[in-house]
Simulated scan of single mutants.
Amino acid sequence: MSDFDIQTPTALDPFADANAENSGAGSKDYIHVRVQQRNGRKSLTTVQGLKKEFSYNKILKDLKKEFCCNGTVVQDPELGQVIQLQGDQRKNVSSFLIQAGIVKKEHIKIHGF
């Protein structure tokens, strides 16, 4: 072989840092807001890491009403409960969580492209 190593690009995994040992669900009390590309222009926003004492369904209901989008709460075996919203709602969700007093600004991590 030559001096140049050939590296093939790998697919981007938006949950790669969540699957690491030191940044699992609820570690360091961070709220992770991510966007995932679906097909075409469609995207999905996920909110993971909220404390279990909050009612996910009530937060989801307020988010759906505020941003005029649809969403659901899914149960993940590793990550716990995750809120999913239609569209790229990263900035909207982070500002909503701060204004509602659910989390402080320094405890939110926004991921995505």
Rank of each mutant, 00 (worst) to 15 (best):
M1N: 11
S2W: 12
S2L: 14
D3A: 13
D3Y: 07
D3N: 13
F4D: 12
D5T: 04
I6R: 05
T8E: 15
P9H: 09
A11Y: 15
L12V: 11
D13F: 04
P14E: 01
P14Q: 01
F15H: 10
A16Y: 11
A16Q: 06
A16G: 04
A16H: 08
D17K: 11
D17A: 10
A18R: 00
A18N: 04
A20C: 05
E21P: 15
N22H: 13
N22R: 09
N22M: 13
S23W: 03
S23V: 01
A25G: 07
G26I: 01
G26R: 09
S27C: 12
Y30G: 08
Y30H: 13
I31D: 04
H32G: 12
R34V: 08
R34N: 10
R34T: 11
V35P: 04
V35W: 07
Q36A: 10
Q37C: 03
Q37K: 07
R41Y: 14
R41W: 06
R41Q: 05
K42Y: 03
K42Q: 11
S43K: 10
S43R: 11
S43F: 13
L44G: 12
L44H: 11
L44M: 13
L44I: 14
T45I: 08
T45Y: 12
V47T: 02
G49V: 06
K51V: 06
K52V: 08
K52Q: 08
K52L: 05
F54M: 03
S55W: 13
Y56P: 00
Y56V: 00
N57A: 11
K61V: 00
L63W: 01
K64G: 03
K64H: 02
K64L: 03
K64S: 06
K65H: 09
K65F: 05
E66C: 01
F67D: 07
N70S: 14
G71D: 07
G71S: 08
T72M: 13
V73R: 00
V73T: 02
P77K: 08
E78Q: 11
G80L: 04
Q81I: 05
Q81P: 06
Q81A: 10
Q81W: 05
V82R: 05
V82A: 02
Q84V: 03
G87I: 03
D88W: 01
D88Q: 06
Q89L: 10
Q89I: 03
K91M: 08
N92Y: 12
N92F: 10
N92D: 15
N92R: 13
V93F: 00
S94H: 09
S94A: 12
F96Y: 11
F96I: 08
L97K: 00
L97F: 02
L97P: 00
I98E: 03
I98M: 06
Q99S: 12
Q99E: 15
A100T: 14
G101W: 05
G101H: 03
V103A: 06
K104H: 09
K105T: 03
K105I: 00
E106C: 05
E106N: 13
H107V: 00
H107W: 00
K109H: 04
I110W: 12
G112E: 10
G112F: 13
G112W: 11
F113S: 09
